[in-house]
Design a protein around this nucleic acid. Structure first.
Lengths: 242, 242
DNA sequence: CTCTGTGAAAACATTCACAGCG
DNA sequence: CGCTGTGAATGTTTTCACAGAG
């Protein structure tokens, strides 16, 4: 009896960064197929949907255990469950948004977060004039001075930065001091955090600029006519601080 | 006399994808230093600001020509100008947003696009009830049926997809048919376009999921305590279509 | 015969380390 | 000296190709 569907995390280290990003894609595609009633899927079919080779899919999944059934493929339900556990998606995450401007408010209205198990429990803004305003379903803007207390009280583990560039690092420091374990940054600059804090950045201007570059330069960077799905938001990890 | 500050594009191919992403970071940092009045900068200083090694910075810049002055560093003004030209940032780009929901509206209000030379000239929405509404400074929502005509009339070369998942591919096809050369996609799915069309995706849920994974897994993917700035939005290039 | 898991090979990207310019 | 540009060395990720399970 081999341990099919067994160990969730064999080595617990050395997950290639690109593979980590693709995990999200696998989970999404698999969830979609599960909903559609599919019971099994081959690495080839999965790869095709996502623009990846079958070998890539198998290597990635094999990082976490033996999920496949030779000759048959992967059991969709099983795999979804395993991936959810591996990625920490089997629990609810509580987050807060800092910055009640355009981006902050758009994120608060973004249903998908809620639906996917990311609950936004609080909004903060530095502008005293904004404090107290109801900015989304039963969420009032709070003062920055309340940050630490609210993070603790609500059990917030993820902070979302939606403030202007020049305030971003300061806000990040405050979030970390308040006890969050990860930060999603929308400000257009690099954020430094001490080791052990997860940080991922999403930068609209860089994204647009990449398009401009590709058009102006007349090529997809590297790999000419090749297909190429390059998943994953900008993420930054920096030790030189703290 | 060696051709300093000469050739803008030597090989015009084989720009490593990660390098292409870092170009945006260089330009941003350099612009900031230019504004601050700095005249020269070394690869080491530049790298330090961005969490990169000096060698990396030099390699990246050397892809496009000889910009540095041995013993002195890089002339900030010169380099900014060159990078802007290389990245196509020396001209204005005209874009349109499809989808007047939360994300679409937030993007329309995002001043930075305008300031950086990306002009959003039109908004479209499939909902007939939305048509005609003024959704941002002098921009009224247009019907999807007007897409092709408006793209042509306004000289729109970039389309921004801010519609729900299930409509995204269809919208992408319409944009390409209308003549845009690049697409920025905010819908949570992979978009396929024919070769020659630039596509970059930004996926909020994947971003959050990466944070959850890092926290749940208790590691930064690969490279343990190492510093690591991984710039760049998800981008997708797919040939298998059209 | 289909499809996985996985070593071995290839491709790709980063860092090192140094010659050479100013 | 300080600093660039770059070949050579190292490290990382992807692809290949095949043994073995069902």
């Amino acid at each position: 009896m081999r341990p099919y569907h067994a160990c969730a995390v064999p080595n617990r280290r050395s997950i290639p960064k690109p593979a980590a990003r693709r995990l999200s894609l696998y989970l999404r595609e698999l969830s979609s197929r599960l909903e559609a009633g599919e019971e099994t899927v081959s690495s080839k079919a999965l790869g095709r949907s996502l623009g990846l080779t079958d070998a890539q899919v198998r290597k990635d999944l094999a990082l976490f255990g033996q999920f496949g059934h030779p000759g048959r493929g992967y059991a969709v339900g099983e795999l979804v469950e395993s991936l959810r556990r591996i990625m920490g998606r089997d629990r609810e995450w509580t987050a807060c948004v800092v910055g009640a401007g355009n981006i902050g408010r758009a994120l608060l209205s973004y249903d998908r977060f809620q639906r996917e198990g990311f609950r936004i429990a609080a909004v903060f803004d530095a502008d005293p004039a904004a404090a107290g305003k109801e900015v989304a379903r039963d969420l009032r803007v709070r003062k920055m001075s309340e940050l630490a207390a609210v993070v603790a009280a609500e059990g917030i583990s993820i902070g979302i930065i939606a403030v202007p560039r020049d305030a971003a690092q300061q806000v990040a420091d405050a979030l970390v001091a308040a006890g969050v374990k990860g930060i999603l940054n929308f400000a257009p600059r690099r954020i430094e955090v001490r080791e052990g804090i997860a940080i991922v950045s999403v930068d609209f201007t860089v994204a647009l600029e990449q398009i401009a570059f590709q058009i102006a330069f007349g090529h997809s960077p590297s790999a000419d006519g090749d297909d190429d799905l390059n998943e994953g938001p900008d993420d930054a990890e920096a030790p030189t601080r703290g």
